[in-house]
Computed example of a mutant assay.
Amino acid sequence: MPLYNLTNRPRRLRRTSALRAMVQETQLTVNDLIYPVFVMEGENLKQEIVSMPDCYRYSLDLLIKEVKEAYDLGIKAIALFPLVTDDKKDNEGTESYNPNGLVQRTIKAIKAEVPEITIITDVALDPYSPFGHDGIVVDGEILNDETVAVLAKMAVSQAQAGADMVAPSDMMDGRIGVIREALDEEGFTHVGIIAYSAKYASAYYGPFRDALESAPKFGDKKTYQMDIANSREAITEVELDIAEGADMVMVKPALAYLDIIRQVRDYTNIPVVAYNVSGEYAMIKAAAEKGWIDEKKIVLETLTSMKRAGSDLILTYFAKQVALMLK
């Protein structure tokens, strides 16, 4: 006999797998996943990123095959990131809006082969800059307004190539409004904007910078990316981006910023995106390689936590793996 009368027994609803499924509050589905992919020049090239096991840079011909596989698994969207050769880099980022540039050619090729998939493009200067910064550099300072003018050109060029959504990741002030106006003026009112609104100056980005060889050549990114200690500022950034025309807002990174995802979710009804970044991916992969964790269970638990915190969509390098598990 119990020491006291238990009227409420929460374990009743945990007794069987069927009951647990019936009352599950948060469900992760393949529709929640955005697959980030890396493209490089060349043919028949597939290079593993050392700090991101099982992630690769692909030449365009092989990337198309990878995108087809992802789409066949039910993944509806990719986020495209280019490895730009050094000879194409300059301080003004002119290659970023070259109609025959790597990103533009990649968009066209993917749309020709997998027209139904949603292509999301990165809008930032760091892949195109010899300095590895997200803006034009003068005397060690990252210029804001001059950079925004280039970002608008980049976004229009990507839209002309067939991008469905552009995703400014640069954290320059006012860029969402300028990009929205530029897209609309060119007739691309249907092209959406995913704003990297709450993007923190995080140490979790290291493997990504390895992938694109885009680490800053001097200083850091703290004059434009957010202070890791701030939360109220995230709502300010989100509020400004929505007012300027953002269709979705993003929190990056995700795992150490679940509280920010929750605050943003409570603030707005537009879709909230979480970026499960390269450092989060690499830590799981490293621990799994050591045999310290069950990779599949940890991946599902981690992504579910991001959904539970309030994200609608998740950019994750685990997208294909998760799609297979859910399938």
Rank of each mutant, 00 (worst) to 15 (best):
T7G: 04
R20L: 10
R20A: 12
M22V: 02
E25W: 01
T26E: 13
Q27Y: 07
V30M: 07
V30F: 14
D32W: 01
Y35F: 11
G42K: 11
N44Y: 11
Q47D: 07
Q47G: 02
E48D: 06
P53E: 07
D54N: 08
Y58K: 01
S59T: 09
L63R: 02
E66V: 09
E66A: 10
Y71K: 02
L73D: 03
I75N: 03
K76C: 01
I78M: 05
P82A: 04
V84H: 05
N91H: 00
E95R: 00
E95M: 00
N98S: 01
L102W: 04
V103S: 01
V114T: 06
I117K: 00
I120L: 00
T121K: 00
V123D: 05
S129H: 02
S129W: 05
P130R: 12
F131T: 06
G132N: 06
V137M: 13
I142E: 10
L143K: 13
D145K: 15
E146M: 13
L151T: 14
A159N: 05
A161C: 10
G162Q: 09
G162M: 07
A163C: 05
M165D: 05
A167Q: 10
M171N: 02
M172F: 12
E186K: 09
V191W: 05
V191M: 09
Y200K: 09
S202D: 07
S202I: 04
G206H: 06
P207A: 10
K221G: 10
T223C: 15
M226E: 11
I235E: 13
E237F: 00
I242T: 10
V249L: 07
A254Y: 04
L258E: 03
I260V: 14
A274C: 01
A274K: 04
A274N: 01
G279Q: 03
E280Y: 02
A282N: 02
M283V: 06
I284Y: 04
I284W: 04
W292A: 01
I293C: 02
I293T: 11
D294L: 10
E295R: 13
E295Y: 07
K297C: 09
I298K: 07
I298L: 14
L300H: 14
G310P: 15
G310E: 15
I314Y: 12
I314L: 15
Y317I: 13
A319T: 09
L324G: 15
K327L: 15
